[in-house]
Design a protein around this nucleic acid. Structure first.
Lengths: 211, 211
DNA sequence: ATTATCTATAGATCTATAGATAATGC
DNA sequence: ATTATCTATAGATCTATAGATAATGC
């Protein structure tokens, strides 16, 4: 039972193409994606693709930018509470990151394969991150330094710590199919898996920080 | 000054095509690779491509199989010395893995993007690993269990530990361009970087094992 | 004789556009 | 009048093959 909107639904076709393109590009990459398949999946004529977005490259760029912005926002939002402990800050970062990946499971592979395999596209991506990452990292480094001074943790580099966190989180997803199949683990449901990995990776990182 | 071989160099063209194809496929993926570019890079006519390998898919499969076999051999060779300690075993595994990635820097991205994005290709890949990984893992698990019994380390799952090791090692390379650029690190020479990462990741893993 | 190579081109896609027609908003 | 949609097709690649010619090994 659909509710009739009085507000006209503008550009329904445009949205359908965008949604179909996102899926096609994220799963097949730029070279593997077909504009005809996108139009077909969107349920519109192929000509509509070009009417709304002119070129394949146009639409691809748009989707990349959208995804990078999303990632930027999800990951590099400064930790709100200035009085939160280092432990809480790390828990927040890992939690955010893993939740984001769980909500966008194709994105890591897409970024790895499409964005920074192409140096031109990588540049745009890196520019975006360069602007915001340092804010989060500076705050993290301050907390680490404070902790180190009071003897609660080792003095490690915040950037390297973030690389460790990113590695453990991302590969939990990207590598899971290999590992689970190779080792014969059962694939439990997503939520359980994410929760388990949050704890596990948090523990790994905290141990690394211990004096 | 070239030494004249009396033994005839068989299939020089074939080798040239193979080498060019490997580079093209590893950097651009199956969909992005062009058989015309491969022939051109190999310095032969395009028809030669088909004369030697018939189809694009043929050659792609051949290169995937070759690379997977290489990876299998490099990573899942059992630790020789049965009397070696857990610490030594882990050091060997991390060292081998990182050396292999350093020697094949495009391979992780290629496997991530090409092999297990396609479930059919992934199956072949996983079959290969399923055969050999358990041998290494069983040996590692035994060492962990021994260590746990004598109170030298925690009792952790060898499979999960390998996932952590793989994550940290692979992402050291795959993610390095992002991180180094985002944080403004200078790219030091490869050997230094590999050596540093070996130590760092070894330390991370050993801390995870501590009781 | 067999193997390797070349030129030329068929055949299959795929992106993009032209131009006509229908729907929509003033 | 403007915006959205359709059909048809141009134009550009790309993979693959046909068929002729040169090189090689007995």
């Amino acid at each position: 039972m659909q509710t009739e909107e009085t507000i006209p639904v503008v550009h329904d076709t445009e949205k359908a193409i965008l949604a179909a393109a996102e899926k096609e590009f994220l799963t097949k990459g730029f070279a593997g994606a077909r504009t005809t398949s996108i139009a077909e999946a969107a349920g519109v004529t192929h000509a509509m693709f070009h009417y709304y977005f002119r070129t394949k490259a146009n639409l691809f760029e748009r989707i990349v930018n959208e995804k990078v912005a999303l990632l930027k926002e999800a990951l590099f939002t400064p930790i709100e509470n200035k009085t939160s402990s280092l432990e809480e800050a790390i828990k927040t970062i890992i939690g955010r990151h893993l939740d984001f990946i769980a909500a966008n499971p194709d994105l890591p592979r897409f970024l790895i394969g499409e964005v920074y395999s192409d140096s031109e596209r990588a540049k745009v991506f890196l520019e975006q991150i360069r602007g915001t990452a340092p804010i989060l990292l500076a705050a993290l480094q301050r907390k680490i330094d404070d902790g180190a001074e009071s003897g609660h943790c080792r003095k490690v580099d915040a950037g390297m710590l973030m690389l460790d966190i990113a590695s453990l989180n991302i590969f939990s997803f990207v590598g899971a199919p290999i590992v689970s199949s190779a080792l014969g683990y059962l694939t439990e449901d997503m939520d359980t898996f994410v929760a388990k990995r949050k704890e596990e990776n948090f523990d790994t990182i905290m141990r690394k920080l211990k004096p």
